[in-house]
Design a protein around this nucleic acid. Sequence first.
DNA 1: CAAATAGTGTCTTTTAGACAATATCCC
DNA 2: GGGATATTGTCTAAAAGACACTATTTG
Lengths: 256, 256
Amino acid sequence: MRMASGKGTTSQSGPSGPPSVGQALRSGAALERAVLAVDVACFSLQDGKLDLLLVRRSDDPFAGAWALPGAAVGLDEPLDDAARRALVDRTGIGDAYLEQLYTFGEPGRDPRGRTVSVAYFAILRVRPEDLRTGRGVDAATWRPARDLLPLAFDHGRIAHYALWRLVQKMEHTPLGFHLLPEQFTLGDLRTLHETILDRRFDPSNFNRQALARWDLAPVPGQRDRRTRRPARLYRYIGARDVPGTPPDVSPVRSSK
Amino acid sequence: MRMASGKGTTSQSGPSGPPSVGQALRSGAALERAVLAVDVACFSLQDGKLDLLLVRRSDDPFAGAWALPGAAVGLDEPLDDAARRALVDRTGIGDAYLEQLYTFGEPGRDPRGRTVSVAYFAILRVRPEDLRTGRGVDAATWRPARDLLPLAFDHGRIAHYALWRLVQKMEHTPLGFHLLPEQFTLGDLRTLHETILDRRFDPSNFNRQALARWDLAPVPGQRDRRTRRPARLYRYIGARDVPGTPPDVSPVRSSK
DNA sequence: CAAATAGTGTCTTTTAGACAATATCCC
DNA sequence: GGGATATTGTCTAAAAGACACTATTTG
């Protein structure tokens, strides 16, 4: 599990930009005018509904239309950084969990010319005060993730795929804990899963399985008082028997 | 758990600080010199071993080193097409199952300058005569997927991730059937899974589960004669209770 | 006490795994 | 027949699901 590649692979041999850049790979010159962008499908849970973060575009094309927050990737900027920057600059959201989703590159997906977008998938426990209207957009807001209006570009398709992926990962990985506060009840955890997977769970069976699958530490003394009978509070420690994340790839390091 | 994403991309807004964001989004000027490429990790099964398709580079950088077959993406070329073209041009392999894997874009992964590579994952039932040394490479060959020498660029990392993904998907999706001929025995199917997942299965239990999970049609009359007692032959029809592929995204349409 | 939600216990059904037993071929 | 692999059958253990029951609070 070494792999710090990237930098490591930088051999000494490189003059910083021979015109033969594409030559070896074949006609890279053809791409000089392509644009590389990132777009982020950011989910949160609010009032028991699954929400997706959208911005209203202020410029053409699609001025006035809703879209995923996105940005062009800087020449020396890692993709992960660009995704996080897009989120912060457009919406003020800064501490989401980020993960690369899929790369959309159909010619014609952007009327201005070839644009390849590396889509990211993000989730976070929302704090309303975090949301603001950032640079380059008219508005930023949360919208029901399962009932979206048409979006700019192919962002509807991206959002749809992101939602599908969220559901898949929720069943097998500890993803959901990013949507909960530090301390939560098993009822919170169950409601979360019911909302995202869109089905109900028997509380008894759900609790049994949750405690078997995740390492959850009961918080001594403390109880949750929102409900009739106060519920025990837990903290998430780890997971057992999880598929395991690929070496160095999938999850983007958490910022801050 | 948690996975520190390795070296942790310390660079952010490097020496050539990012220009105005909104500006970059509109003009795309910042990326005029970036190259977009595809690289393909193509697996096959040969003599009961899992193999990865490699090519030897004929040009710098990394001339003489082994690498994944790749190519620059044409300006009007869909990413999927580019991946298939890379495979065909470099190695002559034409009818693999292709699926987008992950996009690698660390600055510095290519000494010539910023190159973003959309990695693909491919598998096929190998026919030795399909392999040839294509354009721009010295050689093309199959190598043991679990025992690779160092590769050019960050291709070792890509290959490692591709193998991880192959294993994951093998347990939950009908991916494996792409590695088998039209007609196969349950023993073939079992050996395939044993090779890729690197563990043994009880023939009895494996058969029971295979017939429960997949729709397999017995081929009437025909039998496989390679073994002592001739085994029944099956064709793959479909799968039951499979996660399901996302709308329009994951699997690349099959060529030909 | 009634309502509401938390938490426990038990039974049944399904699935996974171990492994014995039989079948059919080649030599 | 003897060796080898295919195929079927059986038993057990583990997991999933349904559901009854108890516990603790508020009003």
